[in-house]
Amino acid sequence: MDDTMTLLFVFIQSTGLLAPIIFIGIHLIRPIFFIPVPVVCIVGGILFGSVFGTLYSILGLTMLSILFYFLYRQVPRLSNKINTLKQKWLGDKVNFTIGQIAILRLIPFINFHLLSLCIMDVTRYFRNYAKASFYTNIPVALLYTVFGQFIREFSTTVILAILLALTLLFYLLREKQVIIKWHEFFNPKAGRSFQ
């Protein structure tokens, strides 16, 4: 991971005024080279500082989400692969809220495009999808750009505390609804008549 970050750092730093455009482009091609989102965001923080690094990362990740939306609709092979991944990891009946998806995006080993598919399931139209993608990309870009360089130095206890806090937030932001099956709702209790 350090070699990848060093290579990205040297490459982008040597491009001068085109650096922001190239950095956003790296977000778009990142999945092809299996570069994790946190690595690119950390490089953005080192190169551009917290504010501009976060803005460029949000822009790049949102553009990647929009590109995924159109590729998912146009490329059946990609949609089959992502649907299989969703079926394997989440099953059929999982409905995450936008807040939960934003929390899940903070966890590095969860597939970025799988979460984009979850956003597609929650939203109906492209405009809503683009807005939800933008909002769910803000926490991941902000966290890894600002604090990403310090996360490697945290102790195991601090990392476990962060994961526990994320799990608690994930639970608190869940969709709060109760599903009662038809036959359970209308099933009269034994020994009771409705006269």
Rank of each mutant, 00 (worst) to 15 (best):
F68T: 10
K86N: 08
K86I: 06
G60W: 00
V140K: 02
G49Q: 11
F48D: 01
K131W: 14
G148W: 03
I42R: 01
R77I: 08
F48A: 07
Y144D: 01
Y69H: 11
Q74A: 14
H27R: 09
I151F: 12
T62W: 01
L47E: 06
F96E: 00
F150S: 15
F134A: 07
D121W: 02
H113N: 14
F33P: 08
I42H: 00
V75E: 13
S155K: 13
G45V: 07
S133E: 07
N95P: 00
I119T: 10
V43Q: 06
I82R: 00
R73T: 15
P31K: 01
P108W: 01
I101E: 02
E153P: 09
D121T: 04
Q87T: 04
L71A: 13
G99F: 01
P139W: 02
Q100M: 06
D121V: 00
G60C: 07
L55K: 11
H27V: 02
P38M: 02
Q149W: 09
L55T: 11
P139F: 02
Y129S: 10
H27D: 02
I159R: 12
M63I: 12
I107Y: 00
M120C: 06
G25H: 09
D121I: 00
Y72V: 11
F33I: 13
F68M: 12
T136C: 09
I42Y: 02
S50T: 15
L59P: 05
T157W: 11
L143E: 04
L78C: 12
